[in-house]
């Protein structure tokens, strides 16, 4: 273990290698490491975000589905109700029409009967007048009367 100038030369050599490493080795490696760390962090964050997005989308789609189902049920109930109402209305309308028709028919039939009666009454009156005219024009005899009366009878029946 003798000391000599090797010591000083080694000191200088050592510092030269350190200088080289400091300038040409350390910075690029550390830069690459930092960049990779950032990349990995970004990737992980993106993955987390994608996962959250997926969960959100799933939740939203479930909600949409549920609301669609609900609105469909609502729609169906409304439609059924409306259909029921329509049927009910139609039935009521039909009843009303039937009743009106019946009433009209009844009225018409009554009127017709009245009219027929009136006509008959007129005819009877006319016949009676005609009969009376004939009776007045000729001498009334029993026979003739009888004929007339039977005729009248026939016409009246």
């Amino acid at each position: 273990m003798n000391l000599n100038a090797t010591l000083i030369i080694q000191l200088v050599v050592f510092l030269s290698f350190v200088w080289f490493t400091k300038n040409f080795v350390w910075p690029p490696i550390v830069k690459a490491l930092d960049e990779r760390a950032k990349k990995v962090a970004d990737g992980l964050a993106a993955a987390d975000k994608a996962k959250a997005d997926l969960a959100n989308a799933e939740k939203r789609s479930m909600e949409e589905l549920r609301s669609a189902r609900e609105s469909a049920a609502e729609l169906r109930a409304g439609a059924e109700k409306q259909a029921g109402k329509l049927v009910e209305d139609a039935r009521a309308e039909a009843n009303r029409i039937i009743a009106a028709a019946r009433e009209a028919a009844t009225t018409e039939a009554g009127a017709a009967a009245q009219k027929a009666k009136d006509a008959l009454r007129d005819q009877v009156a006319a016949l009676a007048v005609a009969g009376a005219e004939r009776i007045l024009r000729r001498e009334i005899n029993a026979q003739t009367h009888a004929d007339l009366l039977s005729n009248l009878k026939q016409e009246l029946s």
């Binding site: 080289f20 040409f24 080795v25 910075p27 690029p28 490696i29 830069k31 690459a32 490491l33 950032k38």
Partner: peptide, 10 residues
């Protein structure tokens, strides 16, 4: 070390 540094990528 310099070889590693020269080829270092992220």
């Amino acid at each position: 070390l310099h070889r590693a540094a020269a080829k270092a990528t992220s």
